[in-house]
Design a protein around this nucleic acid. Structure first.
Lengths: 238, 238
DNA sequence: GCAAGGGTTTGCGCCAGCGCAAATTTTCGG
DNA sequence: CCGAAAATTTGCGCTGGCGCAAACCCTTGC
């Protein structure tokens, strides 16, 4: 999977895994692949910045990207982490044409992208792509909505628990005795995801570590007892 | 505008105003109108409940609808208020087929709706509808994202200020010396929108009333000094 | 191997705002 | 117009978690 990280067009087989192109015939995937620009990027590379005119739609083939947003005041939050097979920067095309957030790689990453013009051509030719996109954005809308509810009603520990479970589901890989989250994550990242501060996130995770619920190996979080974390996420406040 | 509240198909002209059908030829609108089911509903009528299988897409022609969501714990938030020309219940069609929230009228309302089958037929015939829907959901995604950032980084007063401004922009109508929000809004509603409690929302709004920034006339909030509220919304915390 | 710098942990004080409860006002049916 | 029910306002005490600051630890380059 990580063996093919080079600067070239992505393989049609890789695209089949992608939510946006699901259900397309092989012949279509070949066309999609031909229109793609593939790029191999080192970690901590900025792909686009908030406010940039959004001319391309992106997808992660391998690696990971952090999407973060900052307000007119300095305040910053992490919108989400994008892993293999997921799209990002798509919404900009159809709204005001500007990227609503920053995108920065968090590891060595192979990324594919399509121009707005090409994507519209593809959509016109294969309406399934438009339907897929509605489903993708719709699902994301529901997830973000869920996050709003969490922020409004749950305390910090529950929010961190939810964030950890979400990340494990999205980017977890089995490791001896637990599930490791693929990306390296700083405490600040966890805090920004869960909507709390560095300090509070640190306290919570340290507490969990002492209880043996999670562990950390060089910036990578390992979930040892998902059941217990689940319980924290679900328990009533207080 | 409110004169035509009766139980019948909506006029094609009314549909032209709707974001989902923008840019369609008149002949298409006639078809869309023919497929619609129009209903006149008294206030506090439940249109659908969270978890119901989502078989129809809805639009408000006149009146207003409150969309609220409750978690597995009892906690509840107001997702948004839907005014004339806006759609609701659309996302359910393309994701898991269940409504993700409750919809209840907050005033006498004329609502139109389309079946999933009809909507898919329309989309196949007029691809512009699919594009419109992507833009609508995309815009909403950005707004909700914004709300996440607010909740994570701003204090209660700023959040209430943002909520009031958003409502005034969305459903404001000029009234002698100010902008009135069309719907009747309880303190609890304001609290749920801003992600705070009934009590805190009450204190804040009472404070503003004493300073002459807002006024209340039978449940309807009137914004007297939008500039000052804007300033509160933008000021740094503390 | 060591020093420098970034990331993390932790102690401590403080306050925004939650929650309870009671008083007050508004709404609404009859 | 009256009384009951609902909504709103307000006082008060308490606490989660923020913010500062210091100490600690772990990487990374030389």
């Amino acid at each position: 999977m990580t063996s093919a990280i080079r600067d070239e067009a992505p393989a049609p087989e890789a695209l089949r895994q992608m939510e946006l192109f699901a259900g397309l015939p092989m012949e279509a995937l070949t066309g999609v692949a031909a229109m793609a620009r593939g790029r191999h990027l080192p970690r901590e590379t900025r792909i686009f910045s908030q406010g940039d005119p959004g001319v391309r739609t992106h997808a992660v083939i391998a690696g990971g990207v952090r999407i973060s947003q900052s307000g007119s005041d300095g305040a910053q939050i992490v919108v989400r982490f994008v892993g293999p097979g997921e799209m990002f920067g798509t919404v900009a095309l159809f709204t005001d044409g500007r990227y609503p957030a920053d995108a920065v790689t968090i590891a060595e990453t192979f990324e594919a992208s399509w121009s707005e013009a090409d994507l519209r051509i593809l959509m016109a030719r294969y309406p399934q792509i438009a339907i897929n996109m509605i489903r993708i954005i719709g699902t994301r809308l529901q997830e973000v909505q869920e996050r709003v509810r969490e922020l409004a009603t749950q305390n910090a520990e529950r929010r961190v628990a939810h964030a950890v479970l979400r990340l494990a589901r999205q980017a977890g890989q089995a490791i001896g005795g637990g599930t490791a989250i693929a990306f390296p994550l700083r405490r600040k990242d966890m805090a920004d995801i869960a909507g709390t501060t560095l300090h509070t996130a640190s306290r919570i995770l340290t507490g969990w570590t002492k209880q043996g619920l999670v562990a950390s190996r060089n910036r990578r979080l390992i979930v040892l007892k998902p059941g217990d974390i689940q319980r924290i996420a679900e328990q009533a406040n207080g």
